[in-house]
């Protein structure tokens, strides 16, 4: 049953492991020839990876808010992961990783995916179809939540993103500006316009 015993050196840990010689030849640790810089890059890639793992659901949600489509949200998260890992060395240590990831996702959406879909002439599905919570129409809380979702989704794209980032994700104006890559004044006017519109709906009894 146990056919071999190897003491393997993996990463920085020495651990004993019985190994099935036929299926797994122990990876002999290559003499590290990489320059020290590469080591640092690897460590930071691991950090980015774990940061990505923690933020997958939030990134996906932002992707859904932007695109209204689950499959596009999947794509956006994947592309964001790939891009973030590629650019791990560009992440400024000490800053908020989630903000950085939102920026990447936003830029991919704006520059690549949305552009591609527009070129292909694919229309977007109605926001109501994807964002409304299935099977959650019973309780008052859910009715209210769905109303809020619905109203936010009727906002123009730029206002919707700003509202989501500021009021759902709790980013400061400055952080929203950085994610959306626009001046802070633009964020203010988008939020003000969104508030005016939403207040109008509330006042008109749109949240019955």
């Amino acid at each position: 049953m146990i056919e071999g015993y190897f003491r393997m050196l993996v990463a920085h840990t020495t651990f004993p492991a019985y190994s099935h010689a036929r299926t797994e030849s122990p990876a002999l640790p290559a003499v590290p020839k990489q320059p020290i810089r590469a080591e640092a890059a690897i460590a930071s890639e691991a950090d980015i990876r774990s940061g990505l793992t923690e933020n997958l659901a939030r990134l996906w949600r932002y992707g859904l808010v932007l695109s209204h489509q689950r499959d596009v949200a999947d794509d956006l998260v994947q592309a964001t992961c790939v891009r973030a890992l590629e650019r791990a060395d560009q992440f400024a240590a000490g800053t908020r990783l989630d903000r950085w990831l939102f920026s990447i996702l936003h830029s991919i959406w704006l520059n690549e995916i949305r552009a591609r879909r527009v070129r292909q002439g694919q229309g977007f599905v109605d926001a109501d179809e994807t964002l409304i919570l299935d099977g959650a129409r019973d309780t008052e809380t859910h009715v209210m939540a769905n109303q809020v979702l619905k109203q936010v989704n009727t906002l123009p794209d730029a206002q919707r993103s700003a509202v989501f980032l500021a009021y759902v994700e709790g980013l400061s104006y400055r952080e929203v500006a950085s994610v959306m890559d626009v001046p802070i004044g633009t964020v203010m006017s988008r939020l003000a316009a969104a508030r005016a519109k939403l207040s109008e709906t509330v006042s008109a009894g749109g949240f019955e």
Partner: peptide
């Protein structure tokens, strides 16, 4: 201020 809705909960 009427537009200060329960955004976090809704999303």
């Amino acid at each position: 201020a009427r537009a200060s809705l329960a955004y976090k909960e809704a999303f």
